[in-house]
């Protein structure tokens, strides 16, 4: 095994890459109930999906411009906050993306299962 495959930087990069694709899904899922940016970030972090504000807010604006989210400015605790919520189109999109995500997970499990069987057969062969 090469040295680079063990470096924490490489793992961190690959981990971020892996998570990036899931973030949209997580944001859409979390916004089934109305939240403003900061509480949304906290919710995601509490569930193990840390996202920095410089990624989250532009992402929210993009999803809103694509019609998947709706937002409204409202005063809460004497401060104006922008509350986001999943739109009807967003709800539909979330459903489709969840199916896609489950398909990917199932495929991955299938591949791993197959590889495991091949490895076991090889082990028996060498015994």
């Amino acid at each position: 095994m090469s040295e680079t495959t063990n470096t924490p930087d490489l793992f961190e990069n690959l981990r971020l890459e892996l998570r990036r694709g899931s973030l949209v899904l997580a944001v859409l899922a979390a916004l089934r109930s109305e939240r403003y940016g900061y509480t949304l970030r906290k919710t995601l972090t509490d569930h193990g999906l840390e996202i920095d504000e410089n990624t989250l807010y532009p992402l929210l604006r993009r999803l809103e411009s694509q019609g998947l989210l709706a937002s409204v400015w409202r005063e809460e605790n004497k401060r104006n906050k922008r509350f986001y919520r999943l739109s009807a189109a967003g709800e539909q999109m979330l459903g489709r993306l969840l199916v896609e995500s489950e398909t990917i997970q199932a495929s991955l499990k299938e591949i791993l299962k197959e590889q495991h069987q091949v490895a076991e057969e090889q082990d028996h062969g060498t015994d």
Partner: peptide
């Protein structure tokens, strides 16, 4: 979108 974005960033900073 300057003011809109700024208001949101400002709110996030103050919340933090």
């Amino acid at each position: 979108e300057k003011q809109d974005i700024l208001a949101e960033i400002s709110e996030d900073i103050y919340s933090q």
